[in-house]
Amino acid sequence: MIKYFLKRLISILPVLFVVSILAFAFVHLLPGDPARMMAGTDADEATVEMLRKEMGMDRPLPIQYLTYMKNMATGDLGKSLRTKLPVYDEIMLRYWPTMYLAITGMAWSVVIGVLFGAAAAVYNGRWQDYTAMLLSVSGISVPQFWLGLLAIQLFAVHLGWLPVAGYTGKFSELILPSFTLGATVAAVMARFTLSAFLEVLDEEYISTARAKGVAEFLVMWKHAFRNALIPVVTMVGLQFGFLLGGSVVVETVFAWPGIGRYMIEAVGVRDYPVLQALLLLYSFHFVFINLLVDMVYALINPEIRYE
């Protein structure tokens, strides 16, 4: 078990390395001279030259990369071009709102998605199945930003039940964005649970349980449901990454003060140090979540350890 964990842990190192190189290269991939870009278009040659020296951009690239990594390890992500404040501080201001949104969105959508998927499997071929799957395929097809706008239109503007947008720490402000963000995930989870469940129902131990007279209710919830959940765990991890990506759109719709909306703002004003740091942050999250999922998966499914 520990050997598997270590092997998996080591396997992400090259990915993290390449991701960090890409994030580093990001500023160099941009058209034009990074120093000039950071100084602004109307800066004179001397200022640009000074900035280049100051940022260490006159040194060879590998040295620059090492400096970049060293700074990053100490939490120094550079300064925002727009506000001149440290990028680290700017991100920390916005990190938790995004996490609240992602975690609440994830929580409701996994519970609802798995329940709907399981219900569709139990009532396979009946109206419950069709309703759940119709909702699910709609959930996958609906663009999040449209769903968000419709939700604002109905619940905030016309009915006036919930706030339109923004976040000041109140729970009521969390409901609509979290609903919007989780909708697609709930739909994906429902589909995935259904197919995992149906696959398990084909297994011999289900026939055995039925043959020896176990009540249908127990067959479904004790024998089938628990085994069907194993592949669902993997899906939860993958969906969390998707959710973080989706938060960019949802945060923009709801004027949510998170890192997703910050990223779009940074693209708009070409605040490259911020973009660089956010790319790195997002991909590290994604890689580590996948790692975590694999480990949980190995814990609940012993087969994988003997591979």
Binding site: V15, F242, G245
Partner: peptide
């Protein structure tokens, strides 16, 4: 492809459009 997978789709797209 692992590295490309490490960026959620829309974020990768945003990064590319930023470049």
């Amino acid at each position: 492809s692992d590295v490309l997978f490490a960026f959620p789709g829309i974020l990768l797209a945003i990064a590319i459009v930023a470049i």
